[in-house]
Amino acid sequence: MRVGLLTREFPPDVYGGAGVHVEFLARELSQLVDLEVHCWGEGRSTGVVRHRPWPALDDANDVLRTFSVDLSMTAALEGRDLVHSHTWYANLAGHLAKLLYGVPHVVTAHSLEPLRPWKAEQLGGGYALSSWAERTAIEAADAVIAVSGAMRDDILACYPALDPARVHVIHNGIDTGLYRPDPGTEALVRNGVDPERPYVLFVGRITRQKGVPQLLRAVRRIDPDVQVVLCAGAPDTPEIDREFRELYQEVSAERAGVLWIPQMLPRADVIQLLTHAAVFVCPSVYEPLGIVNLEAMACGTPVVASRTGGIPEVVDDGRTGLLVDVDGEFETNLARALDTVLADPAAGARMGEAGRVRATTEFGWDAVARRTAALYGEILAQA
């Protein structure tokens, strides 16, 4: 079975959950099928073909540049038996390959453009094009994979023309051999974190989706003796970047121990930071699943997260962490939940241990890959 896996992100250029998903899925799928990854970038290596936007579009809207990559991917997919695209950045390539070569197209939906209206701030008129590309690909796909049950509901609500029988739930996974508690603290010291003081940790992009402004306002209310470590970069727009910086400066002026790490850290550093955090916080206002919560749980850390999207399918409220409703009291209740975990380290440790067990037993990437390959087989048998 010759499969083309289409994505924007792939190592070494991974900046979000979709990229993490594709990285580990590809590693496991390559043991089960003849896999060729098509991604953004320069050059070619064994099993990986990289494509860059057309130079003639260097000054054009980002969506047009994306479409030029999609055309390049499509041209390179001849001979594949099936194509599998991830995010709107690659969906159009999968759809065009389906039409051009007569092969099945599988879409994994990591998020949905209709549920991210703030993307118009980033893409301008390109948001209408990204939405069109996603809708066209999803509605014509032979199968759509939702990364959570909540995501499946969202897909069918946004695209009611889609046959529900074509939407399958295959959760995101976690490599619990890689993401595991690391007793070392050198990464903390190197990045300015005091290992002797408890800290709240956030890891994610600076976007409206991730709820970073709400988090900054919430930490004003938590125990002032606790450090707050923000591994936050890759802002979507200059506007959200400016808002974040202003809030960060305000909060830093009000309380000590607020540390911003804007650069993308090596994975080993992130694992150490996750391991030693008193609590990991995920304040997303929209999150189909949230791999980063699995990463924290696999490192034995309790999680305080939004009760939104697929997060409740990962974080077991009261057992592996606490969930907070995204409502008018969100920031107040987020601060209260963080203080609850911080005030009882023994209970936090029990939540962390339960999270590690849950991540290990229920979310392995090998199982994700087997379910994905089985779906490919079913689709090809019906073709």
Rank of each mutant, 00 (worst) to 15 (best):
S111R: 12
E113C: 10
A187W: 01
R190K: 02
T108E: 04
G125Q: 12
L188Y: 07
A120N: 07
A141I: 09
R135T: 13
P181V: 01
G184D: 00
Y179H: 04
D194A: 00
P164L: 07
V169M: 02
V203P: 14
T176L: 03
T176Y: 03
G94L: 02
L99K: 09
R116A: 10
L201H: 12
V147R: 09
D182F: 06
H110S: 10
S131A: 03
L96V: 07
G124D: 07
R205Y: 03
A187D: 00
A109C: 13
E121Y: 01
W132A: 10
G149Q: 05
H95L: 06
S130V: 11
A133V: 11
P164Q: 10
P183R: 11
R205V: 06
V193M: 04
V107I: 15
A161E: 15
G126W: 02
A97K: 01
L99H: 08
A137N: 08
D142F: 00
L156S: 01
R197F: 03
A141P: 05
L123E: 13
R116F: 05
I145V: 12
G192L: 00
V144E: 14
A165C: 10
G204Q: 15
A109E: 14
F202G: 14
P183T: 03
H105Q: 03
L96K: 12
V189R: 10
L123T: 15
Y101F: 15
R116G: 13
T176M: 04
L156R: 04
K119R: 14
D194M: 01
Y159L: 10
P160V: 11
K98E: 02
L129R: 06
L115K: 11
V103L: 05
H168Y: 07
A133Q: 06
L201I: 14
G124F: 07
G94P: 05
L178K: 13
G177A: 02
A141T: 12
D153F: 09
Y179S: 05
L100I: 13
G149H: 12
